[in-house]
Design a protein around this nucleic acid. Structure first.
Length: 589
RNA sequence: CGGGGUGUGGCGCAGUCUGGUAGCGCGCGUCGUUUGGGACGACGAGGCCCCGGGUUCGAGUCCCGGCACCCCGACCA
């Protein structure tokens, strides 16, 4: 491609609203343009890189038995009503009516369509297992798009769906994806870690997320460097420190004026925070009698810990959860700042699993200015649910006991879910097994955000001058710079070399513009192709063509008749380096 | 949805407080000089100053109401 013909131009200054490096450089180098909040156009350079990522994904999916299909972006509401997600999912799902008034949705994911296909196609265990996938546009009306391509509303996703006759089969396909995903990221040059994650709106049992670690990430992960334990904050567990046990002592009401926080209470009574019980009041929408109702929730946790709202919502099977306001708290018979489960009416009581083994805690008296000493779970109050609802924090002990947890930030570039039979049961995807018995298909669902992956690669491979693409995803391999446009011999040689590279199928971007050399070098650094060739009076005086790698400072002169071979060798070496990163990984459950 | 910020030529910004001919740098076009790390000169094109209402002789500027975009939070496979 001749740069003079390319549909895009570089920008000297980044638009003011780009604040992460990948966004700035992708904009400045002419890869992308924003059309609306979280909605982008992909220009030729980006399109080529995306195509390469997609090819890598296709190869790895095909290698584990995947068959590519294409499902629609527009779905009839009925299938989402059948799965129930029509009612569960809020405004992040775009809905509209077609001309005849039928409800339609823009697909945010494709489990329903898959299930609809499967119930028509799959009748027998003989047709299983299967793995189908697509690379398709999704739309999610996120509350807030941010960070360029990292969090967008419209995006391309590779989503695959495994279909099995039993859980063993699902497990196998799940593990194959786990390895395939590492292969994909390694071939794209992006370092990632796999962490255990919440199943969220997907439902299902086990889930992993693949995380690129970066301070601009929006997920917080807890990792243990000693054991390799890694989990999203939403599900991370830890070993809760035990406190002194002893026989239950009698409850005693004490005046504790002005102690509306655990810290002030502990200071006032001169006790550790772990000797207190904190009440967390929430309002949740929970399943009841086949529908949903809104209930007041009291969650009790020891004062030295914090409630993890995701864990709490999961314990309640709630589809929505928010903190309660003061009126709601008082209406339930509790007093903000002096609250506990004791004396609260019409509430679901959830107790953290550390509470039953922590006796004689100080809890609120539900009376302004008073607390109760020596409250004991089981004797003084009961719970509807006992579960781990505590948030793991940096410094907590890893659940395997190997060492402390560390908090890091990451961007989720992929995920895998064991869905089980949730969708197949809802949509009636059954097959006849060996015994002629109808059984629901066991499903898994696996996603990779293609554009987000591109953005993370850009984020990882750049310096203060611009991008530095790994060879496997670079839009072109070679950036050919004609540095002395006035030098006829240089121009002729550059034109000839461009032709020679093209006929040898080398992917080359040729800067033939009538610009000064400085402009061209800066644009080459900005666009970030792995190999730069320069032809100019200076290189010719030294005997040929200057060759430079984007990520190195050395330049060498190669004779004109050897350039093609040299370039091919360099590209092969770059690929060999990338391919050497593809290794077997251990499955960490 | 809550808090904050910004909307002026393709990009970056000034002008708004204190109303009076719409500016600067980059980019863009033509011509000339220049040519190995973002050259220079001359001439030139390009603006519903986010939108709608109001105040005023007169609004980019003041008032009211919207909208869009960005950041923090909530939310999020």
């Amino acid at each position: 491609m001749r740069l003079s013909q390319l549909f895009s131009q570089t920008l000297r200054q980044a638009p003011a609203d780009a604040d992460v490096r990948s966004h700035q450089f992708l904009l400045r180098a002419g890869f992308i343009r924003q059309i609306a909040a979280g909605v982008f156009a992909y220009l030729p350079l980006a399109k080529r890189s995306l195509a390469k990522i997609e090819d890598i994904v296709r190869q790895e999916m095909d290698a584990i038995g995947g068959q590519e299909i294409s499902m629609p972006v527009v779905h009839p509401a009925e299938i989402w009503q059948e799965s129930g997600r029509w009612y569960q999912i809020g405004p992040e799902m775009a809905r509209f009516k077609d001309r005849s008034g039928r409800d339609m949705v823009l697909g945010m994911t494709h489990e329903e369509v898959v299930a609809d296909l499967v119930r028509h196609e799959i009748q027998s265990y003989r047709q299983l297992p299967q793995l189908i996938y697509q690379i398709q546009t999704k739309f999610r009306d996120e509350p807030r798009a941010r960070a360029g391509l990292i969090r967008v509303r419209e995006f391309t996703m590779k989503d695959s769906y495994s279909l099995d006759a039993d859980w063993e089969g699902l497990d196998e396909q799940y593990r194959r994806h786990y390895q395939a995903y590492f292969n994909i990221y390694n071939r794209c040059g992006l370092p990632v870690i796999a962490v255990k994650s919440d199943t969220g709106m997907m439902g299902g049992s086990m889930a992993h997320e693949f995380m690129y670690l970066t301070p601009i990430g929006e997920d917080t992960l807890l990792i243990c460097e000693e054991s390799g334990y890694a989990a999203n904050r939403e599900v991370a567990t830890f070993i809760k420190p035990a406190i002194q046990t002893g026989p239950p002592l009698p409850v005693e009401r004490v005046a504790t004026p002005g102690t509306t926080t655990i810290e002030s209470l502990a200071r006032f009574l001169n006790i550790p925070t772990s000797q207190t019980a904190k009440a967390y009041f929430a309002v949740a929408t929970v399943p009841e009698n086949g529908g949903y109702t809104t209930r007041f929730v009291v969650a009790i946790i020891r004062g030295d810990m914090e409630v993890n709202e995701t864990k709490l919502a999961n314990a309640l099977k709630a589809k929505e959860l928010r903190v309660a306001n003061d009126e709601e708290i008082r209406a339930a018979g509790a007093v903000p700042g002096y609250g506990s489960a004791i004396g609260v009416r019409n509430a679901i009581v959830v107790v953290d699993d550390a509470i039953p083994v922590s006796p004689n805690l100080v809890a609120g008296a539900n009376e302004e200015g008073y607390h109760l000493l020596n409250t004991n779970y089981g004797r003084d109050y009961q719970a509807d649910i006992v579960a781990d609802i505590a948030a793991a924090r940096e410094g907590d002990l890893s659940p395997d006991g190997a060492g402390p947890l560390k908090a890091v930030r990451g961007v989720e570039v992929g995920n895998i879910f064991e869905l089980g039979t949730r969708y197949s049961e809802a949509l009636g995807c059954t097959f006849l097994d060996r015994n002629g018995e109808a059984k629901p298909v066991v499903m898994g669902s696996y996603g990779i955000g293609i554009g987000r992956l591109l953005a993370c690669i850009a984020e990882h491979y750049c310096d203060d001058k611009g991008l530095m693409w790994p060879v496997s995803v670079a839009p072109y391999h070679v950036h050919l710079v004609l540095a002395s446009g006035d030098d006829d011999r240089a121009r002729e040689l550059a034109d000839a070399l461009y032709g020679e590279l093209l006929s040898a199928k080398v992917e080359v971007l040729y800067d033939d513009r009538p610009e000064r050399p400085g402009v061209k070098f800066n644009d080459a650094d900005l666009i970030g192709l792995p190999l730069r060739l320069t032809i100019g009076s200076k290189s010719l005086a030294q005997g040929g063509v200057e060759v430079k790698r984007r990520n190195r400072d050395e330049r060498r002169i190669v004779a004109v008749d050897q350039v093609l071979q040299h370039v091919q060798d360099e590209i092969a070496a770059l690929f060999a380096e990338i391919d050497s990163r593809v290794v077997e990984v251990d499955f960490v459950d």
